[in-house]
Nucleic acid binder design. Structure first.
Lengths: 132, 132
DNA sequence: GCTTGACCTTCCCCCAACTGGAAGCTTTAA
DNA sequence: TTAAAGCTTCCAGTTGGGGGAAGGTCAAGC
């Protein structure tokens, strides 16, 4: 398989696949024309990577997870720990974003959105006390 | 005011303040020793930037918001639009993260987390059908 | 006056995880 | 034969700064 086929079948852009090779996540063979040659094995790894990335795992997490995947003597607790740490990170991020969303929603609600200059959004950003 | 004072008073790292000058968000004067000299005006702008960034606005959004802030003839509708677009972006991101969080939570729940290798998390990432 | 330490300057590289594009092969289809 | 499509490497850019080096400046203490 050339990179184009693997790209189609894995759903990952060719650029990304080359990048993953660069950083040592996959190691395709090379044909005598210099083209990368992928086996099912690499396709499978790339699909794994695609799914892990879609769950938001960092590249370094992916590296760890793949190492565990390849290790028949792994403990599921090691996998679980990686996942739990990532979940905590995601949940923290959700909390941050929700806080922003709440603040923004309130400000937007109060803004008349007409052609006058008065705007509680800018007042808030400008640090002025609300004039009530 | 030198950059250190402004940093303390605005809560922004000196590095960040220099960066904001680099990209044209603030334009402090210069003393004859080459030091940046900030007036209350710049401090105020930096505080504005800090608050806008804390709400997740991109630098380019901040640039637009500051321009509107400085424009006495603005329409609050312009401000509102920027804020609404940003809110939509944030809410989309929250939805993405929640989806990840849900998937991860389920997988983690099913993982025994012991010293055996069997792990539904890896099975899922590996793309295998769950053996139910 | 001198030294020391804090503060300031510019400059350049680094981060994540790619993406875009240029220049130049190879392969394939017409 | 030739044109298009596909592949290669390499370099630069993205966001929003952070780290740190090399060097100038300032204020305090002696």
């Amino acid at each position: 398989m050339n990179i184009g086929d693997v790209s189609t079948r894995s759903g990952l852009p060719a650029k990304t696949i080359r990048y993953y090779e660069d950083i040592g996540l996959v190691k395709p063979l090379r044909g005598k024309n210099g083209y990368r040659t992928f086996r099912e094995q690499e396709l499978h790894k790339l699909a794994f990577l695609g799914r892990a990335r879609a769950l938001g795992f960092t590249i370094e997490d992916c590296r760890r997870l793949m190492a565990l995947y390849d290790d028949d003597d792994r403990s599921s607790s090691d996998v679980k720990r990686v996942a739990e740490e990532h979940l905590a990170y995601i949940n923290a991020k959700i909390a941050d974003l929700k806080s922003m969303s709440n603040t923004l929603s309130h400000l937007i609600e109060e803004c008349s959105g007409d052609n006058r200059p008065d705007c509680p959004i800018l007042e808030d950003l400008g640090g002025q006390q609300a004039s009530n």
